[in-house]
């Protein structure tokens, strides 16, 4: 979805973002500044509360000396760029197979109920969208809220998270099932000892490399 309404608000990088943008530009040779486009768009999106307005596209095109359509091509290609306004908390719910099998449909219902339609901002400034695989399948189902992952969720957890966010409280990122990173959930699972690992590796038939 592309928000094409120009609000005639001038956009320009803040002082700090400008120096960051210039640092990104310095990574590329002269005349190839356009290569920095993804970083520049990301900085701009961060500054503009998570989305890219047409004014920003114009500004970035100007900044990198590219045509507007070339910037638009990049901004529409990557799902990390939002082209319509998002809430202060933007939920990206994974709906790909592992998450779906682990119950993302339940989460989806909660999001529909609590926030509303996808790609729209609720009255309490939340928004959500269903995305493709976020790459954390072993902790499915997961939701990315702004920059962090919230894993092993169920409907109750998600409802709590939304409520806490509405109250303006800090929420815990990571697994909601006391999982250590992406280790197996069952605490009684047998871990190999160091000896066992060595024994297994010795039994492998693969010949060693002579250096």
């Amino acid at each position: 979805m592309i928000d094409t309404k120009k609000e005639n608000k001038d956009f320009s990088f803040s002082e700090q973002n400008l120096s960051l943008a210039e640092y990104e530009l310095s990574k590329y040779p002269k005349g190839r500044e356009g290569s920095a486009i993804i970083s520049i768009l990301w900085i701009a999106q961060k500054q503009n509360k998570g989305w890219l307005s047409p004014e920003i596209i114009d500004y970035v095109a100007n900044f990198l000396d590219l045509s507007q359509i070339r910037v638009m091509e990049i901004a529409t290609f990557y799902t990390m760029f939002n082209l319509s306004p998002v809430g202060a908390y933007h939920f990206q719910m994974c709906g790909t197979t592992p998450c779906m099998l682990s119950g993302s449909d339940e989460l989806k219902n909660v999001l529909y109920k609590e926030i509303g339609e996808q790609n729209s901002v609720s009255k309490d400034n939340l928004s959500w969208v269903e995305v493709e695989c976020l790459g954390a399948c072993c902790n499915a189902p997961i939701i990315q809220i702004n920059d962090d992952y919230y894993e092993d969720l169920n409907a109750v957890d998600l409802k709590n998270i939304i409520d806490e966010l509405r109250k303006g409280k800090e929420i815990k990122s990571g697994s909601y099932k006391d999982r250590l990173t992406s280790a197996p959930l069952n605490k009684n699972v047998k871990f190999f000892t160091q000896d066992e690992i060595e024994r297994i590796s010795k039994n492998r038939k693969k010949p060693g490399l002579e250096a």
Binding site: I57, S67, I69, R70, M72, E73, T76, F77
Partner: peptide, 16 residues
């Protein structure tokens, strides 16, 4: 002219 979006949703258009 450019191609916006990707894959199945790719469209040829001018900017806005």
């Amino acid at each position: 002219l450019g191609a916006i979006h990707r894959g199945e949703n790719m469209e040829i258009t001018t900017y806005l």
